[in-house]
Design a protein around this nucleic acid. Structure first.
Length: 308
DNA sequence: CGTTGATCCTGGGCGC
DNA sequence: TGCGCCCAGGATCAAC
């Protein structure tokens, strides 16, 4: 589940590795992930140079000298740079206990849908076993704007402000978790970081967005940014498939407070973490720190002080 | 406006 | 060892 921190980690890695590279030729599979006809990709991509790599929410935007290649990694997407002088790993090795991938580099396999071969001998490989990813080639900037038009604020940018966040929650009767997942208020938050941010803010994931107290919304506003920044700092969260542009797993899985920690003690109070379903997603929370009911105004000031 | 359920897809985990 | 079954889930869409 590449979310903002994973996509940002990949972006930073790719910038350091392949900025300025020129595409020599292209290989691709006839897969649903392509939102642009294969003939167009094969016709337009060769000879283009990688000028910049941007990110918007969970979308990666590879800026070429003429076009824009937009990639969404879906759930299991991997974007790695393949080096000719580097030995390929054997298959996809997994850590015997954690199940984490221990792969540095692998050559293209049946799940590799796009290969950009560069003039210098290296390649950029887009692999996605579950095929929930998307790949667009856009010739006009206006097409890019339209594609990303539904996205809310970038939580790690200056446009992420408390007034805008409060405004995004206003009148929304949906659960706060569903609101965070839907990308329209804040872009880039997925299942993992939603649970982490809600825990940090001591808010039950099922609470109605417009029923949160003002101080809870403020805490959540901060917690979202902190959870995502932490994810970037640790190089993303590898639960199973995520690897960075160098084929390596992230480190944030060891830092998670509640996600995937069902039955384990809450890091704050020791009560066992529960797993429920909210907004059709597995949801982890502490039943003690994140009570289902709206907090009483009389204890609001108290809990505010405890939480931060 | 809002929610629910289906859809896409495959590897992994589990029970037998 | 192997088979069948079920599940995970980001985004979108139909139905109500």
């Amino acid at each position: 589940m590449p979310e903002l921190p994973e996509v940002e980690t990949i972006r930073q890695g790719l910038r350091g590795q392949i900025l300025g590279a020129t595409i020599r030729d292209v290989e691709l599979t006839g897969c649903r992930i392509f939102q642009t006809p294969a003939e167009l990709l094969l016709e337009r991509l060769p000879q283009q140079q990688l000028v910049e790599i941007d990110r918007r929410g969970k979308f990666l935007i590879v800026r070429l000298n003429r076009d824009r290649l937009v990639i969404h990694l879906g759930m299991t997407g991997q974007l790695t740079v393949w080096y000719p002088e580097r030995p390929d790993s054997e298959g996809f090795l997994r850590h015997p206990v954690t199940g984490l991938q221990r792969v540095r580099q692998h050559s293209a396999d049946k799940h590799t849908h796009l290969q950009l071969h560069f003039e210098d001998g290296r390649s950029l490989l887009f692999r996605d076993p579950r095929k929930f990813g998307k790949c667009h080639l856009l010739e006009k900037e206006s097409e890019l704007t339209a594609l990303l038009a539904h996205l809310g604020m970038e939580p790690l940018s200056d446009e992420y402000t408390l007034p805008a966040f409060l405004n995004g929650l206003k009148g929304r009767k949906t659960s706060i978790k569903a609101l965070l997942l839907n990308q329209r208020v804040v872009a880039g938050v997925g299942n993992i970081y939603a649970d982490e941010a809600l825990f940090q803010a001591s808010i039950h994931p099922s609470r109605r967005a417009n029923r949160l107290r003002r101080y809870e919304k403020e805490r959540l506003f901060q917690a979202i940014r902190l959870a995502l920044e932490k994810g970037v700092t640790y190089g993303g969260t590898t639960l199973r498939d995520y690897v960075n542009s160098d084929g390596r797993e992230g480190g944030n899985q060891d830092e998670l407070l509640v996600y995937g920690r069902t039955e384990q003690p809450c890091p704050r109070c020791g009560v066992r973490i529960e797993k429920i379903v909210v907004a059709q997603r597995g949801t982890h929370f502490c039943p003690s720190c994140q009570p289902r009911s709206r907090p009483n105004p009389n204890v609001a000031v108290l809990s505010q002080n405890v939480a931060y």
